[in-house]
Amino acid sequence: MGANALWADDGITVNAANPGAVITNLGRHLTEEDLVELPAFDYQSPERGAATSVLLAAWPQLEGVGGRYFENCNEAAPYSPDKPTQGVAAHAVDTEAAAPLWQISLDMLDAARQA
Rank of each mutant, 00 (worst) to 15 (best):
D9I: 03
N15W: 01
D107M: 09
G64Q: 02
V93L: 13
T95V: 15
F41K: 02
A21I: 02
Q103D: 15
Q44D: 03
P46S: 07
A50H: 06
T52N: 01
V22K: 05
E71F: 00
A17I: 00
P78E: 12
E75R: 08
V93P: 06
L62C: 05
A77W: 01
L101N: 05
S53P: 05
L106T: 04
G11L: 03
P100D: 09
N25P: 08
G67E: 06
N18R: 07
Q103W: 06
D34H: 12
L26R: 03
F41L: 10
Y69F: 09
G20N: 02
A89E: 12
A21M: 07
E37G: 13
E75P: 04
P81A: 08
W102T: 06
S80K: 10
W59M: 02
G27E: 11
G27I: 10
G49T: 07
A58R: 06
F41D: 01
A111W: 13
T24P: 07
P60Q: 05
A89S: 12
T85M: 08
Q44Y: 01
Q103F: 08
A97Q: 12
G87N: 10
G66D: 08
L26Q: 14
E75Q: 11
R28C: 05
G49D: 07
I23F: 08
E63G: 07
A77V: 07
I12V: 11
A97H: 11
L62D: 05
S80I: 07
L30Q: 09
W59H: 15
A98Y: 14
Q61K: 15
G87V: 03
R28W: 01
N74L: 11
L55N: 03
R28E: 12
Q86F: 10
E75M: 10
M108Y: 10
Q61I: 11
E32G: 05
H91D: 14
N15T: 04
N74C: 14
R68M: 01
V14N: 02
G11D: 02
T85E: 10
E75N: 03
D34W: 10
M108K: 11
S80R: 13
L30M: 14
D82F: 01
P19A: 03
